[in-house]
C-alpha cells in the first residue's frame, strides 16, 4: 500500500471510532448543537426590535433573519472546541497515549472535528432547506456558484478556527489557564467576526481591520457569500479567501514551532 492509502486508512478508521463515540453521547451532542443557537437568536431578536418595520444600513427584517440563520449555521460548522479537550488531555496526562503512537495527535482532533461538523451539517442543512421551502422568506437567494463559494469558505474558516483553537489548547503545555485565555480571544471574535451584528453596520474602518485579523473571514464572510451580499463585490470575495489562506499558512507555521517548544514542556502527569 502506498503512503497516501495508509494515511487515508487511518483517517477512515479514526472517523468511524469518533462517530461511534459521538453516537454514544448523541443526546449531549444534540443539546450542545441547540445550545449554540441561543446567541445568534438573541442577536436576531435584538436587531429585529431595533429595526422595527424599517431598515438599518440595508438590513430589514428579512435580511436580519437570513443573516443570523447564516451565522447560526456557520458558527456550528466552523467553531473550534479543541481547547477544552487539549487542556484536559494535557493537564491530566491522557495526551500521552496519543503522543506515544506513531501518528500526530492533531489528526485525532481533525477527525473529531470532521465527525461533529458532518453530524451538524446533516441535521442543519436539510432543516434549513425544509424551512426555506415552507417559508420562502427564509430561503437565501443563493445560486450554485454562491453555494460552492460558501462551502469553500466554510472549509477555510473551519481550518482557521481549528488551528487557532488548537494553538490555544497547546498553551496547556505552559499554563493551566489555556481555556481562560481562549475565552478572552473568543470575546474579540464575537465582537469582530460578525456574530453579533453584520460588520457592514460597524463604524468605518472596522471591517477592514477585521479582514486583516482572523475574524471577518471566519463568520461574516461566509454568511455574506451565502446571502448574496458579496455578489456585486468580487474584490471582497477575493480578499476574504486571501485572508483565509494567509491565516492558515501563518497559523500552520506557528503551530509547528509551538508544538516543538511545547513538547519540551510536557509534564506527562500521572501513571
Amino acid at each position: 500500500m502506498n503512503r497516501l492509502t495508509l494515511f487515508l486508512n487511518k483517517y477512515a478508521r479514526l472517523f468511524q471510532v469518533e462517530w461511534s463515540v459521538m453516537l454514544a453521547y448523541r443526546s449531549e451532542s444534540l443539546i450542545w448543537m441547540v445550545g449554540a443557537f441561543v446567541q445568534p437568536l438573541i442577536s436576531l431578536a435584538v436587531w429585529l426590535t431595533i429595526s422595527g418595520t424599517g431598515s438599518i444600513n440595508g438590513y430589514g427584517a428579512r435580511e436580519y433573519i437570513l443573516y443570523f440563520l447564516g451565522v447560526l449555521l456557520v458558527e456550528r460548522l466552523t467553531r473550534s472546541w479543541d481547547v477544552w479537550e487539549l487542556d484536559q488531555d494535557i493537564r491530566e496526562g491522557t495526551f500521552s497515549a496519543k503522543l506515544l503512537r506513531p501518528f500526530h495527535p492533531i489528526h485525532w482532533s481533525v477527525t473529531q472535528n470532521l465527525v461533529y461538523k458532518s453530524f451538524f451539517a446533516l441535521l442543519m442543512v436539510p432543516a434549513w432547506l425544509v424551512l426555506g421551502w415552507l417559508f420562502p422568506v427564509l430561503s437565501p437567494a443563493a445560486n450554485l456558484s454562491s453555494v460552492l463559494l460558501f462551502t469553500l469558505a466554510i472549509i477555510g474558516s473551519s481550518a482557521v478556527r481549528f488551528l487557532t483553537g488548537y494553538m490555544f489548547g497547546l498553551l496547556a503545555f505552559w499554563t493551566n489557564r489555556a481555556i481562560s485565555i481562549f475565552l478572552i480571544y473568543e470575546m474579540a471574535h464575537l465582537l469582530l467576526s460578525g456574530r453579533i451584528a453584520p460588520l457592514s453596520m460597524y463604524p468605518d474602518g472596522w471591517l477592514e481591520w477585521s479582514l486583516w485579523l482572523p475574524f471577518y473571514a471566519t463568520v461574516g464572510f461566509p454568511v455574506e457569500l451565502l446571502s448574496g451580499r458579496l455578489s456585486d463585490n468580487p474584490q471582497w470575495i477575493v480578499l476574504g479567501f486571501c485572508s483565509q489562506i494567509v491565516w492558515i499558512a501563518m497559523l500552520g507555521l506557528a503551530l509547528r514551532l509551538q508544538w516543538r517548544a511545547g513538547l519540551k514542556k510536557y509534564g506527562a502527569v500521572g501513571g
Binding site: R13, F103, G271
Partner: peptide, 30 residues
C-alpha cells in the same frame, strides 16, 4: 514509536466510550 510500547497501570490508552476492539483496530491502522 513503532518499536516501543509503554503500558501504564494507572493510565489508559484505550478509547473510553467504545469497546476495546475498536482501539485494537485503530492501532492496526496507526
Amino acid at each position: 514509536k513503532r518499536r516501543i510500547s509503554l503500558v501504564m497501570g494507572q493510565k489508559s490508552q484505550l478509547i473510553w466510550d467504545v469497546p476495546a476492539s475498536e482501539t485494537f483496530l485503530v492501532n492496526k491502522v496507526i
